[in-house]
Design a protein around this nucleic acid. Structure first.
Lengths: 209, 209
DNA sequence: AGATATTTGCTTGCCGGCTGCAAGTTGCTA
DNA sequence: TAGCAACTTGCAGCCGGCAAGCAAATATCT
C-alpha cells in the first residue's frame, strides 16, 4: 500500500458530506466576521472552503440555511458552557456565576460566538426561521433566570417581595446590552469593571433586607 | 385659475426635491419595518413613493445613503425627546427621568425609531459610515450618563466610591438590552414592570448608604 | 469477487432581480 | 429661450436559487 493510498484513501459519502459541511461552516463564520452576513455570498463560502461556487447553496438549501446551521452549532456550545458553570446553583449564586460565565466567554470571544451574535442582530424584526429560534432562545434564558430567583426566594435568601420576572428581564438586559455595546466597540468598553458593577447591583437588589 | 392649477401648481426645484426625499424616506421606513433592511430594495422605495425605480438611488447615492438619512433623522428626534425630559436634572433624578423617557418612547414606538433600531442592529460588526455613527452615538450616551453620576457625586447625593464609568455602562446596557428584547418579541416583555425594577436597582446602587 | 445498476456528492449553466451608473427626457429658472 | 436640475430609462455586473449533468461511492446480481 502506497503513501498516496493512505492520504487519499477511499472515503464514505457520509465522511465527504461531513467534511465539506464543516469546512463551509468554518468559511461562513470567517466571512461573516470579515464582511458581515449580508456581504457574505454563498459563492465565496463554497470557494473559500475549497469547493465550487454552488456547493454551499446545494448543501444548506439557501443562505438562510447556512446561517441556521451556524446558529444551532454556536448556541449549543454556549448553553453547554453556561450549564457547566452554573450547574445546580440557585438564587443569587447562580446569577453571579452566570455573570462570570458571560464575562469569560466574551474574553475568549470565540469566532463562532461573535458570528452568532451578528446573525442574531441581523434577524431582528423580520419573521424567519432564524428569528423564531431567537425568540425561543431568549424566552428560555429569561425562564432560567426567573427560576433561579424563585429558588432563591424559596431558600429564603432572596426577599419574597421581589418581582422574579422583572429581575429576569433586567438580568438579561444587562447581559445582552453589554454584549451589544462590546460588539459595537470592544475597545471602548471595560468588561471587567462593568461586570463587577453588575454583581454589586444584583447583590443589592436581591438580598434580604 | 382652475382647481387643477391650485393642486398642481408650479413648484420650485427645492420643493420638489424636499417632497420626493421625504416621501422616499417614509417609504423606506415602511419597507424596513415590513420586510427588514436587507430585503428592502431601492426600486421598491422609489415606486412606493410614487416615482420611478431609479430615483432613490439617484437621490441618496446608494442604499447605505438612504439608511444614513433615516438614521440621522431619527437619532435627532430621539435626542431631542431625551433632552426635553431630562433637562438640567442631575444625578439619580436624571437617570430615573431618562428611564421614563425610554419607556414612554417604546410605548409610543414611532415607526422611525423602530426602523432606526433595525438599521443599527444590522450595521453591527462591519465597518461602514453607519457603524461609525453608531459607535459615536453610544459613546455620547455613555458620556452623558457618566456625567449625571459625577454630578450626583458632587452634589453629595451619590456615594463617592461609585464607579461612574461602570454605572454608565450598566445603565446603557439595561436600556439597550431592553430595547433588544422588546424588538425580538414585544408581546413577551412587560416593559412597565421591567422599568420599575430598573429604577429600584438604580436607586439602591447609587444612594448614599 | 467482479461487473453493472443506482444513489449521492458535487459542478455548471441559466433565470430573475437587485444595485449602481451613464445617457436621455422632462420640468423649472433666469 | 438657453441652461440647469429633477427625474427616468437602459445597461453591466453581481447574487441567489434552481435544474441538468458529471463523477465518486454503494448496492445488486451473477
Amino acid at each position: 500500500m502506497s503513501v498516496v493510498t493512505i492520504n487519499r484513501r477511499r472515503r464514505t459519502q457520509a465522511e465527504r458530506t461531513e467534511e465539506s459541511g464543516q469546512r463551509m461552516v468554518d468559511a461562513g463564520i470567517r466571512l461573516i466576521l470579515e464582511k458581515g452576513p449580508q456581504k457574505t455570498t454563498l459563492r465565496e463560502v463554497g470557494e473559500l472552503a475549497g469547493y465550487s461556487r454552488g456547493l454551499a447553496g446545494y448543501h444548506f438549501g439557501s443562505k438562510e440555511g447556512l446561517f441556521r446551521e451556524i446558529l444551532t452549532h454556536s448556541r449549543k456550545q454556549w448553553v453547554q458552557e453556561l450549564n457547566a458553570t452554573v450547574g445546580s446553583k440557585r438564587g443569587l449564586e447562580a446569577m453571579l456565576a452566570a455573570t462570570d460565565a458571560f464575562r469569560r466567554f466574551l474574553h475568549k470571544a470565540p469566532d463562532h460566538y461573535r458570528a452568532m451574535l451578528l446573525l442574531w442582530y441581523e434577524s431582528v424584526g423580520h419573521a424567519s426561521p432564524v428569528s423564531a429560534k431567537l425568540v425561543e432562545h431568549h424566552a428560555a434564558q429569561r425562564r432560567d433566570v426567573k427560576r433561579w430567583v424563585e429558588e432563591g426566594i424559596v431558600d429564603g435568601e432572596i426577599a419574597d417581595d421581589v418581582d422574579a420576572e422583572a429581575v429576569a428581564a433586567g438580568f438579561c438586559s444587562l447581559m445582552l446590552g453589554t454584549v451589544y455595546q462590546w460588539q459595537v466597540n470592544p475597545k471602548a468598553f471595560d468588561l471587567d469593571r462593568a461586570f463587577e458593577e453588575y454583581k454589586r447591583w444584583l447583590t443589592l437588589a436581591l438580598q434580604v433586607r
